[in-house]
Structure formats: C-alpha cells, structure tokens
C-alpha cells in the first residue's frame, strides 16, 4: 500500500523504476470505440485543441483510483472532455446536453 508520501511524490502515472511483476505479453485488436477515440484525439492534437501533453495531464488529474478503473481509451475520452472544458472550447452544459441527445438517439435506434 502506498504511503501518503508516496502518493504525493509518485503520482499514479510515474511508474519508472518501481518494482512490478512480470510483463504479460498481451495485445488485442482495437474496438470501434477505441479507434474512434484515438482518431478523435489525434485530430484534436493536429488542431492544437488538446495536445499530447495536455491529454496526459488530463489523465493524470483523474487520480489513481479512476486511472485504475477506466480503460486506456476511456481515460483519453474523459481527459479530452475536461481539457476542452477547462480551455473554454466547450462548456460542461453543452456537453451534458449533447450526451443526453446522443443517448436518446442511440436508445431509440436500438429499440
């Protein structure tokens, strides 16, 4: 269990040099969600809306627990949304409203 000092000195992403178990040689084909998310984030970087460093900082800001629970691209999506809100590119109100619209659309399409 990490001590309080460790939590401050070693944020969740800063793994270099820490003890850890064996590397499991794992991989998987990307899901459509992962691919869309990756493509979106690349386009955001191209337009300097969310660059790689901002994205990573956005992930780090989620904190150890969320980082541990969410998958890689789930973290990217949340990070992008927070960075865009922070920078005033979108507001959380319009994002929430749009998410409700999309959810309604998808639910209707599935029904």
């Amino acid at each position: 269990m990490a001590t309080k000092r460790d939590m401050v000195v070693r944020p969740a992403h800063d793994l270099g040099g820490l003890p850890a178990g064996p590397v499991v040689p794992s991989d998987h084909e990307m899901t459509p969600f992962e691919k869309s998310c990756h493509a979106l984030l690349n386009v955001l970087a191209e337009h300097k809306l969310v660059n790689t460093e901002e994205k990573r900082r956005g992930v780090e800001d989620l904190g150890a627990q969320i980082i541990g629970e969410l998958t890689y691209y789930e973290r990217w999506a949340v990070s992008a949304s927070r960075v865009l809100i922070e920078k005033g590119v979108i507001t959380s109100e319009e994002l929430g409203a749009r998410m409700n619209e999309i959810r309604a659309r998808l639910t209707e399409a599935a029904a």
Binding site: T71, Y72, A77, V78, I102, R103, T107
Partner: peptide
Amino acid sequence: DPHAPIENTAGEPDYFDVLQQAIRELL
C-alpha cells in the same frame, strides 16, 4: 477489459462512447 462491448445488449449506450461522440459533434 478492452474487449468490453461498446453498446451492451441491454440497450444502454456506453458512457464513454457517447462522450467521445458528443465531443466530436460539438467541435
């Protein structure tokens, strides 16, 4: 689990997939 389905059979769209779609549409 990266293999988790995006839209589960119960019909509730995946939160994160909706989130990335919403970001794209708004921008």
